[in-house]
Design a protein around this nucleic acid. Structure first.
Lengths: 172, 172
DNA sequence: CGGAGATACTTAACATGTTAAGTGAATGCG
DNA sequence: CGCATTCACTTAACATGTTAAGTATCTCCG
């Protein structure tokens, strides 16, 4: 915690004060970003030791839960955009952590599933991951955690269809 | 670690059910990610119209608030990693939105400040930005928003020094 | 049946996240 | 003073976020 006065001899004649705006560091996006970073910082080292990134881990977890899914469904579940998912799946497949086969009914779709190796990897990561989650829960408080998640869900709900359903705007 | 039932070993039966884990879509990182995305989705179009990314906007806001700062301080304020900030500053400087000059006392440090053009750009973006923020606040509720931010701050606090201060671990 | 349009991805291109290494400038200490 | 360390950044390298195009397929309507 290196505190710093941060006033190099002047700094008293600002040029931009016309728009106060929110204190900035207290804006909602920043709060969410910082909180998430604080949480992820706990998990990254462990994942890294197993050669996984956060997103790769999300995909494996999603696959382990739903068994097999189309790419689009997986993108929704793991909350990744198509292009990101496409790249990651290519890598995970090359590492034999997942398997892919095109659906017979619709040649465009491909079904993705976790491989035996993928399951093994998950099994080796899960304990640590769970322990970290437990530590976080314990530090913050299980009840508060549940409350927080509830609020986050409500926030998401209250904004649903605000940025997507603006069908009455300009098209360019 | 603990052994696992593990009953895959064939083609048609499911192969991944061994590690329940949290419902996944209900994990804290996912909740935070989704909430943040729901919020940012509102701002991105407007920023984009002004040729700014979320991070560039964060930097300009930070600079407008603190007037002038060293790169490291700015990184802390805008919550960006050094390398990202370095790249973005290079671009913002090329676009004449910010100014840089090396400190005379310490040649390593460089002081960054927002330019007149930068201030103008901010002034043109701020109204829309504020309007969106107001809409979000109104939808979610000002009181709940304050509560949420409070909880997020507490979460951050409760995890501070968990992943960074483990000075007693292996070094490799 | 055939071609326009919709679908399910994949590629491309650019910006940032993340970690490691590099550079030049201060500092500390013998 | 000399030089190893530390500091404040910057570069590099790889992975993902984000938007726009591209590619096969599939659907549907005339």
């Amino acid at each position: 915690m290196s505190k710093r006065p941060a006033d190099p001899a002047n700094g008293s004649a600002p040029a931009a004060r016309q728009v106060p705006m929110r204190d900035f560091s207290r804006s909602l996006p920043m709060s969410l970003l910082r909180a998430r970073e604080a949480v992820m910082r706990q998990f990254r080292p462990s994942l890294r030791e197993h050669g996984l990134t956060e997103q790769q881990w999300r995909i494996l977890r999603a696959l382990a839960a739903i068994e097999a899914a189309e790419v689009t469904e997986l993108a929704r579940t793991a909350f990744l955009l198509g292009p990101s998912l496409s790249r990651i799946l290519r890598d995970l497949e090359a590492r034999n952590l997942i398997e892919r086969k095109t659906a017979k009914a619709d040649q465009r779709r491909s079904m993705v599933s976790i491989s035996k190796e993928g399951v093994k990897l998950m099994a080796s990561v899960a304990p640590t991951s769970e322990a970290i989650y437990a530590e976080i829960t314990s530090r913050f408080g299980a009840r508060k955690l549940a409350e927080l998640q509830e609020m986050l869900g409500e926030l998401e709900q209250s904004l649903a269809g605000l940025g997507a359903g603006n069908e009455a705007s300009a098209e360019e």
